[in-house]
Computed example of a mutant assay.
Amino acid sequence: MSENTQEANMRNNSGMFVARSLDEIRFWSRIMKEHSLFLRLGFRCEDTQLIEEANQFFHLFERIEQQSHSLTNQADPEQIRRFNTEVQQAATGIFLFKRKVLGLILTCKLPGANNFPLLVDHTSREANYFRKRLKELNEGKLKPLADAIIKENVFFLRIMADHAKFIGHLLDPSERKLVDMARNFSNDFDQLVFQAVDLESMKPQSQTAPLLDQFLDQNRVSVVSLRDFKKTARDLIEECKIKSIIHPLLADHVFREAERFLEIIDMFESHLTGETYN
Rank of each mutant, 00 (worst) to 15 (best):
Q207C: 14
R40Y: 08
V179C: 04
L262G: 10
L250F: 15
D47G: 04
E263Q: 14
N4L: 14
L37T: 13
S124C: 06
D23F: 10
S70D: 03
A233D: 03
F17I: 07
A90F: 05
N138S: 13
R82W: 03
L106Y: 01
P111Q: 09
K241T: 01
N153F: 05
R131E: 15
A127R: 04
Q218I: 00
M181E: 15
R11V: 11
E152G: 04
A161K: 09
V18Y: 09
A251T: 05
Q191R: 12
I105N: 05
K165P: 00
S225P: 04
M202R: 12
V221I: 09
K109I: 03
S244M: 02
C240E: 09
R99I: 05
L110Y: 01
M181C: 01
K132Y: 15
L60G: 01
D235C: 00
I149L: 06
A54C: 10
I245Y: 03
F17T: 10
K243S: 13
A90V: 03
R125V: 03
K203V: 04
F17V: 02
S174R: 04
Q195F: 01
Q218K: 06
E175N: 01
D172R: 00
D47H: 12
F194N: 00
F17R: 12
R227Y: 14
V254M: 12
Y129R: 03
S225F: 00
K33S: 08
L216P: 09
E3M: 10
A148F: 03
L272Q: 04
L236R: 07
F97K: 05
D23Q: 11
I149R: 04
F17M: 15
L142T: 08
L60P: 01
D198T: 02
L134Y: 07
Q6N: 13
L106T: 00
D190K: 12
K143L: 03
R183E: 10
T232I: 04
F229Y: 07
R44F: 10
K203E: 04
N9Q: 11
L145F: 08
V197E: 07
I167Q: 08
M160F: 02
L106G: 00
Q67F: 05
L178Y: 02
H247R: 15
S14V: 03
R81H: 09
L137T: 11
M1S: 13
F155R: 09
Q218N: 10
I265N: 04
L250I: 07
K132V: 11
F61N: 07
F166L: 12
L226H: 09
E78T: 05
A251C: 06
K141G: 07
